[in-house]
Design a protein around this nucleic acid. Structure first.
Length: 748
DNA sequence: TCCCTTCAAC
């Protein structure tokens, strides 16, 4: 066997030529047979195993060492642990190595830092950084890259300010990083764990030292991204990985312009952007819906042959979807040779975000058929489709799958479930899921508050909103939308005014369209029409047609034609294609008997080629969706539905129901109006529900537009006569009809 | 040895 000895030596000197486990084992055996088992030889074999990622084999050798392991042995095991994601073991090994008196060399730190990052142990990371500086290996390229990566992940550690985390040690980081110290203001974190709008200057035992200024989170982000930048600037040599790391750091910190500026500088360093660079910056164009610059990058990826890269493809799918070009997303998706869970997630999310709910569900089923295991993100992407389609049975199926696979502890998924149950009309289940959450985050609270708002439980919603603040969860833009929506659906004018001001003054959130719309809607429906008009006129951003249109709808309710005409002018000026406004104006005129003007509106609509979206109501019976449009005679049960409606109408009229024909556009005879109204889609669906479900079952229907005034009244009567609870979801909220009353208190 | 992509509330 002496002929093997020479290749054996050369193999040991060039371990990278060993490519398979089989080959490594062969070499291991040969070494044992011919060369013995000295620790330096075994360390070399160990290093070969670890390079190939064989943890088990590496550990077997490692554990045979009787004397202190060599540095190569330590390094190999540390790297192998990190490679397998066993960060804790990796770091334990690192501390043993240090305790054994061995000085780590530069190529152990990338693994160690990666483990710190993986464990989110930033305190340890910082001390490792100190160790790197002391050992003088901070000029190492790989170490520098890993350091930057670690600091760039720091900002992900939490949302907002959490006193528990601060008192458990991370305060030190902030304390050391702040150059200027101002001990004027002291806040006891036990007493006031949520000091907003204060700048952290340090800590002193149980006290945080702060002064007025930037919010804590912002302050810390700045500290960490500055560390990334500092390491970057100090690195003596940089490769494309260094550039990519600092760019990704900027993107994750929301510093998109800075990221793009850095990309432009890559060329000056005589380097070329690679697939990592591109997949990091594509999300910027997705975020800012910048299709033209996104397309430029797409072109670049094609020219440089990056188009089959999974990462780039997923970014592109996402980018096109966020720019509402979901067709392009689908095209890229279908061209992909390999589909991983992320490409599936991207395309499913893209479809759902663009309202292609059925397509999203179809892709989800295909994903399961393709045996790709869904991740938690898959469920939070697909759940809104169930919420929008009100397909409770599908949502329940998904809920079952989620529970079976242990995803129900995931806060994103739990929030999506809360949202889904609330939007499918089951507010009680939504609440029970919410109550079971260990630490609901702001989104969970918001989903629950919005759920109550949609169901008209305004007080419950506001109670939760205050509870959220008590729990130190800081409301954001959307949370205020939810709270204001609750006020709006509950008619709570004063509370809304207070919230609106509090949002601006205490939270520094500048109101957006949704906030303005909610308040304007509320004022209008409360009859404060002029105040609403003033409020919209004084908006600091340009009101859209739809904001004015909400006021128009209030003008209709309060029968103020004079104001309606002024408001109508505004809408048509800003948004001449606003169909809702034409219909509202036409309704307003026709309910005042001004048929000519009503007709003019309809002619104007037609002239612009606009057609009214047909009203449609659907109901789920025995896991099947039945959809109805007004006057629809195609349903197989049509005759029975018609008969049921006729019987109910007689009973209703005996109880005092009078047809309200205000909503009928057309200048037609009373009898015809009666027929038109009684064949509205919501009535057909409800009647179908009554005749096809056992008595006492709750009836749940969904309408694509707002429920019509007359149908709302009629449904109250029907709920009493049929002894049924009827839950109707329309385009803006839920109505729960029971015993002749509606949960909205007729305020909608 | 180091770097990249997908998600929730409106």
């Amino acid at each position: 066997m002496s002929s093997i000895a020479i290749p054996l030596r050369s193999l040991l000197q060039n371990p990278s030529t060993i490519k398979s486990k089989h080959h490594a084992k062969q070499l291991h055996a040969q070494v044992l047979k011919t060369e013995g088992s000295s620790s330096s030889l075994m360390a070399t074999i160990l290093s070969i195993y670890s390079h190939l990622g064989f943890l088990h084999e590496s550990l077997i050798i490692f554990n045979t060492f009787t004397s202190l392991p060599t540095i190569i042995a330590w390094k190999s095991v540390i790297r192998c642990y990190t490679y397998h994601g066993l960060f804790k073991d990796s770091l334990t090994c690192f501390s043993y190595m240090r305790a054994s008196g061995k000085h780590p060399d530069h190529n152990v730190f990338p693994s160690v830092l990666k483990s710190c990052t993986g464990l989110m142990d930033f305190k340890l990371g910082e001390s490792v950084h100190g160790c790197i500086v002391r050992l003088g290996v901070d000029a190492d390229l790989y170490t520098g890259n890993a350091l930057m990566n670690m600091y760039s992940k720091f900002q992900n550690m939490d949302e907002g300010f959490d006193s528990r985390r601060f008192s458990s040690g991370n305060v030190d980081l902030v304390y050391e990083k702040i150059p200027e110290r101002n001990f004027d203001i002291k806040v006891d974190i036990e007493k006031d764990p949520h000091p907003r709008s204060l700048k952290f200057l340090g800590k002193n035992q149980n006290q945080l030292l702060v002064s007025g200024g930037v919010t804590p989170r912002r302050r810390r982000d700045m500290v960490y991204i500055e560390s990334v930048k500092k390491v970057f600037d100090m690195m003596p040599s940089k490769d494309i990985v260094s550039w990519n790391t600092v760019i990704a750091g900027y993107v994750h910190n929301g510093m998109c312009e800075e990221a793009l500026r850095t990309v432009r500088n890559i060329g000056r360093a005589n380097l070329m952007p690679d697939s990592f660079t591109l997949s990091s910056i594509l999300p910027i164009f997705a975020k800012y819906v910048d299709i033209s610059r996104g397309k430029e990058i797409h072109g670049y990826t094609l020219r440089h042959g990056f188009d089959s890269d999974d990462f780039i493809a997923s970014s592109l799918i996402d980018m096109y979807a966020k720019c509402t070009r979901v067709d392009d997303s689908l095209r890229i998706f279908h061209l992909l040779p390999q589909l991983d869970v992320i490409s599936w997630n991207s395309i499913i999310a893209g479809c759902v975000q663009n309202g292609l709910f059925d397509e999203g569900l179809k892709l989800f089923r295909q994903m399961l058929t393709a045996k790709v295991k869904p991740s938690s993100l898959t469920f939070s992407s697909i759940m809104p489709a169930c919420a929008h389609l009100t397909t409770l049975h599908l949502g329940k199926q998904l809920h079952g799958y989620i529970t079976r696979n242990g995803f129900d502890k995931n806060v994103f998924i739990a929030s999506a479930l809360v949202d889904m149950y609330a939007k499918c009309g089951n507010i009680r289940i939504a609440r029970s899921i919410f109550d079971k959450m260990d630490s609901p985050d702001m989104v969970s609270w918001t989903a629950m508050i919005m759920g109550y708002a949609l169901h008209g439980h305004a007080n419950e919603a506001l109670l939760l909103f205050h509870k959220m603040k008590m729990e130190n969860v800081r409301p954001n833009y959307v949370a205020f939308v939810a709270a204001l929506t609750a006020c709006s659906h509950g008619g709570l004018v004063d509370e809304a005014r207070m919230l609106f001001n509090c949002m601006i003054e205490d939270y520094g959130i500048s109101p957006g369209l949704e906030h303005y719309a909610a308040v304007a809607d509320l004022l209008g429906r409360a009859g404060k029409l002029e105040e609403a008009y003033e409020f919209i006129s004084k908006m600091h951003i340009r009101p859209t047609g739809s904001v004015w249109a909400t006021l128009l709808s209030s003008c209709r309710v309060h029968k103020n034609i004079e104001l309606a005409e002024r408001v109508g002018e505004k809408v048509f000026q800003i948004d001449p294609e606003n169909i809702g406004a034409y219909i509202l104006m036409s309704n307003i005129y026709s309910s005042a008997g001004r048929w000519k003007e009503a007709a003019k509106m309809r002619v104007a609509m037609k002239g612009r080629g606009m057609t009214k979206k047909p009203a449609c109501t659907w109901i789920e019976v025995k896991n099947k969706i039945h959809a109805f449009v007004a006057g629809d005679k195609s349903h197989p049960y049509y005759d029975r539905i018609k008969e049921a409606l006729k019987v109910m109408l007689e009973q209703m009229e005996r109880k005092g129901y009078v047809l309200n024909t205000d909503d009928v556009l057309h200048d037609v005879e009373e009898e015809q109006k009666r027929n038109l109204l009684c064949s509205h889609s919501e009535r057909l669906a409800i009647a179908f529900g009554i005749i096809s479900t056992p008595s006492g079952t709750t009836i749940r229907v969904t309408k694509n537009l707002r429920v019509c005034v007359d149908c709302h009244t009629a449904t109250k009567f029907i709920s009493e006569i049929a002894g049924r609870e009827i839950v109707m979801r329309d385009v803006s909220r839920f109505h729960h009809f029971k015993d002749g009353k509606c949960s909205c208190g007729d305020y909608w």
